[in-house]
């Protein structure tokens, strides 16, 4: 089942406030690691600091008001984390479950190696978006940079804008949906037929991200599976 951005029906307690101008990231993360399901937190003045809200392992709600540095929401497990701003390198890297919502743009390697959950980036994502993704769903409202979905193993990447060079290079079983132009496809990544089940899954993903784009405007890309076994005739692709 697709994880969605909509709030849980859990009892919302008043969010506990953290001002990162006053306290450090260490104190914030320590607190988050001991939080209980349903707890809510508001983080102010993140100031581009790194590793904000990493290792969250309960169903908490976290609202970060401002820009975050590297690895925000890294390895999230069950948290619903919103960044009201831009995110640095590796936002939601290796996420397992839960949601991460970036209202601005994201830097490189957004959602890298993530196993599950939903990452929504309202703006653009830079290079290597979804690199080595292993089951995460990623929805990008704008464009994505080069080498995105490199060695993408599983999960789904939806791009409402354009994709940069070498999309899906050496891709395994992840499914990619792009509405705009693709600058070039990477090795073994090909255009695939958009069947009913793909339109349905894409529609569900767009809705989960709170978007109303029409699935019929998108093209599906995936693995041609020609590099799955070493073969002499593929030597130029290695």
């Amino acid at each position: 089942m697709t994880t969605t951005l909509e709030s849980r029906e859990s009892q919302r307690t008043a969010p506990r406030a953290f001002d990162l101008k006053l306290g450090g990231v260490r104190e914030l993360n320590r607190t988050l690691h001991h939080a209980a399901d349903g707890d809510a937190f508001a983080v102010d003045h993140p100031g581009g600091k790194h590793s904000i809200a990493v290792g969250v392992n309960s169903e908490v709600e976290i609202e970060i008001n401002g820009h975050v540095g590297y690895y925000a929401a890294g390895m999230n497990q069950g948290g619903r984390i919103t960044v009201n701003g831009n995110a640095g390198v590796g936002v939601a890297e290796n996420m397992m479950s839960g949601t991460v919502h970036v209202t601005g743009d994201a830097s490189q390697s957004a959602g890298a190696t993530a196993h599950g959950g939903l990452l929504v980036i309202d703006g653009n994502a830079s290079a290597r978006c979804g690199i080595s993704m292993k089951g995460i769903d990623i929805v990008v409202g704008g464009n994505i940079g080069h080498m995105s979905a490199f060695m993408a193993q599983a999960g789904r990447l939806v791009v409402c804008g354009d994709a940069g060079e070498a999309l899906g290079d050496s891709i395994y079983e992840a499914r990619l949906y792009v509405r705009g132009k693709v600058a070039s496809l990477g090795a073994d990544c090909v255009v695939k037929e958009m069947r009913e089940e793909h339109l349905a899954e894409l529609g569900e993903l767009l809705r989960a991200a709170g978007r109303d784009d029409d699935p019929v405007d998108f093209t599906r890309y995936g693995s041609a599976r020609t590099l799955y076994n070493f073969h002499v005739d593929n030597s130029s692709a290695y």
């Binding site: 990231v25 260490r26 993360n29 320590r30 690691h33 790194h50 590793s51 990493v54 290792g55 540095g69 590297y70 690895y71 890294g74 390895m75 390198v89």
Partner: peptide, 12 residues
């Protein structure tokens, strides 16, 4: 930065 993230996740 990566090492610091791993430390944060595992509480140092």
């Amino acid at each position: 930065i990566k090492i610091a993230e791993l430390r944060e996740i595992t509480d140092w």
